[in-house]
């Protein structure tokens, strides 16, 4: 490598780092400000005096008059996101396997209908879906938040594409050895799909974790609020307490960063396929 090339590479990295810092600056600001003295919140780009007051306020229950259930909301978010994601993964694998590897009458019709539904403007369904949930008695419950998001068309689509790329000879060989479709799915197909599973899991979980509109509509009691909804309501247009707002934002964002870092390697592998 000659000197000029080296220099060019150095500048590329420099620009990349600067760009990255600009992109994630708001989150750095969020973390720093959550620890900032309340006099400095939103008054300094980089705070200089630090305190734990915002976190104490948040976890100690907040205003004395209306204690806000932050930890309970965190728990709710986790239950809803984990439950919903698990169901979306299971249903996604099942339906995709049927579409990719089981030849049956009606398969093409289902396939076409899924594609049609994927491009259908979902906004039309918002009000009546709320009414369906209300009528079956799931308003203001975990199930009300989980069930309408128990199947993801995107997950079906991604899995189906991946499964189609697995050669049929693998499956035929296993069938000759006497394996049934369930065994093939669990022993052959799923172990081959680890990286795509990671990508699908991460996307579904993050999307569910940060859902606002639906979770806001379908709950009313304080004990059912998810963290995202509580954050939104607590610090809406007229909300005060900017310090705790940043602390609550950190509470909501940290799990995302941690999960993402844990799975980052598998995620990169999986993305290679996703983008083909």
């Amino acid at each position: 490598m000659d000197g000029r090339k080296k220099k060019g590479l150095f500048f590329r990295y420099l620009i990349a780092v600067i760009l990255l810092l600009i992109m994630i600056f708001p989150y750095i600001y969020m973390v720093l400000t959550s620890f900032a003295d309340w006099d400095q919140v939103d008054k300094k780009l980089i705070p200089t005096d630090f305190t734990l007051k915002s976190y104490q306020w948040l976890l100690g229950g907040g205003e004395a008059v209306i204690p806000r259930p932050w930890l309970h909301a965190f728990f709710n978010s986790f239950v809803v996101s984990a439950g919903s994601t698990l169901l979306m993964m299971v249903s996604g694998v099942m339906v995709a396997y049927a579409l990719a590897k089981i030849p049956f009458k009606g398969r093409d019709t289902i396939n076409n209908f899924i594609l049609f539904q994927m491009f259908f403007p979902a906004i039309i369904l918002l009000i009546p879906t709320f009414l369906v949930i209300q009528r079956i008695g799931m308003y203001d419950s975990y199930w009300g938040m989980i069930l309408p998001k128990a199947l993801s068309l995107w997950a079906v689509f991604m899995y189906a594409n991946f499964f189609k790329a697995i050669p049929d000879t693998f499956i035929e060989a296993a069938k000759l050895d006497g394996a049934n479709d369930f065994q093939i799915l669990f022993k052959i197909v799923l172990p081959m799909s680890k990286s795509i599973t990671t990508v699908i899991f991460l996307f579904l979980f993050m999307e569910r974790w940060t859902e606002l509109l639906w979770d806001m509509l379908v709950t009313k009691s304080d004990s059912m609020l998810t963290l995202n909804v509580l954050l939104s309501q607590m610090f809406g247009p007229y909300g005060g307490y900017p310090g705790p707002m940043y602390a609550a934002s950190v509470l909501l964002t940290m799990p995302i960063i941690i999960i993402f870092l844990i799975f980052s390697k598998k995620f990169q592998e999986g993305m290679q396929f996703t983008l083909k």
Binding site: M23, P26, T33, D42, F235, F260
Partner: peptide
Amino acid sequence: FLIGFFLPYLASGVVSSLIIKGI
């Protein structure tokens, strides 16, 4: 780098909005 640039996509829209509002 890609993971860093991906963070805003994964983070909550509520959080992003509140931070920008503060800034």
